[in-house]
């Protein structure tokens, strides 16, 4: 799926495995996400979706296989085929290009919305304060929350918190965005506002990997839907194909439960 210019795909996983002690959580995941593509990951609880996302930005260390983001091995230096563990500084440098949005928002509780968005550009990239503040305000505007710039997370609704969290991730100008069930912790009436922000982001050409149970969103926005179960990719393809005409029994039984 590499682009005509020969640029590497944004994300490429080759036989990724992950074990916690003796528990095998990922059992050889291979997939590719091209630039500007939106991939939705679906699958039952415990199938390893979150673990896979966390491996992508090296919050978890994979046990075997290879993970490339934009052509680079994540978390290791590849020196003549052997992988050398990275200095934490270099791993941090890789992570700053990958935005992550969590199920439980994880906004910094002691910082206002604006401070949350400003923190990483200011501290990690060394953007001048005034510039960072201006750009953060523009991002809050993009998610429709300029009026809440001075509010602390505890004073925001779940939907608002998640939109701030998206703005915070965007502030680092990532080339890849990871979403781990961004709407699962939200009251039903707040889901729409977050999905709208994500749709707009997809339309702007952001490359996204989204773990979600929102089948409507997957159908409308995703270029590819991947169904995972028990640490393996069972089925993947265009949303239409996977969601309406699944080939595997496991996919069918999962979909019949969530739809």
């Amino acid at each position: 799926m590499s682009s005509p210019t020969g640029a590497p795909p944004m994300l490429r996983a080759e036989q990724v495995c992950k074990e916690f002690d003796s528990l095998r959580v990922l059992k050889g995941i291979s997939l590719e996400v091209a630039r500007g593509e939106v991939m939705c990951l679906i699958g039952p609880s415990g199938s390893g979706k979150s673990t896979f996302l966390r491996c992508i930005n090296h919050l978890e260390r994979i046990t075997s296989g290879r993970l490339y983001v934009d052509g680079e091995v994540m978390g290791y230096h590849d020196r003549g085929g052997r992988l050398h563990e990275m200095h934490p500084r270099d791993a941090a440098a890789q992570r700053r290009d990958i935005g992550m949005v969590f199920q439980r928002f994880n906004l910094f509780g002691h910082r206002t919305a604006l401070e949350n968005v400003v923190e990483a550009p200011l501290r990690v990239k060394g953007v001048p304060r005034a510039d960072a503040a201006r750009r953060a305000m523009a991002l809050l505007d993009r998610v429709g929350l300029t009026s809440k710039a001075d509010a602390y997370p505890a004073q925001l609704s779940g939907g608002q918190q998640q939109r701030v969290a998206i703005a915070r991730a965007l502030a680092m100008e990532p080339k890849l965005m990871l979403f781990d069930e961004p709407t699962s912790a939200l009251d039903p009436e707040l889901v729409g506002e977050v999905l709208d922000v994500m749709k707009a982001l997809a339309q702007d050409g952001m490359t996204m990997v989204v773990v979600t149970h929102e089948m409507g969103f997957a159908r409308e926005v995703a270029d590819t839907v991947v169904f995972m179960d028990d640490g393996v990719v069972v089925e993947s393809g265009e949303p239409q194909a996977v969601l309406t005409d699944p080939q595997h029994q496991r996919t069918r039984s999962f979909l019949s439960k969530v739809l």
Partner: peptide, 9 residues
């Protein structure tokens, strides 16, 4: 975790 994901040391 969120801080690490943002690239903070």
């Amino acid at each position: 975790e969120a801080a690490t994901a943002l690239g903070l040391s």
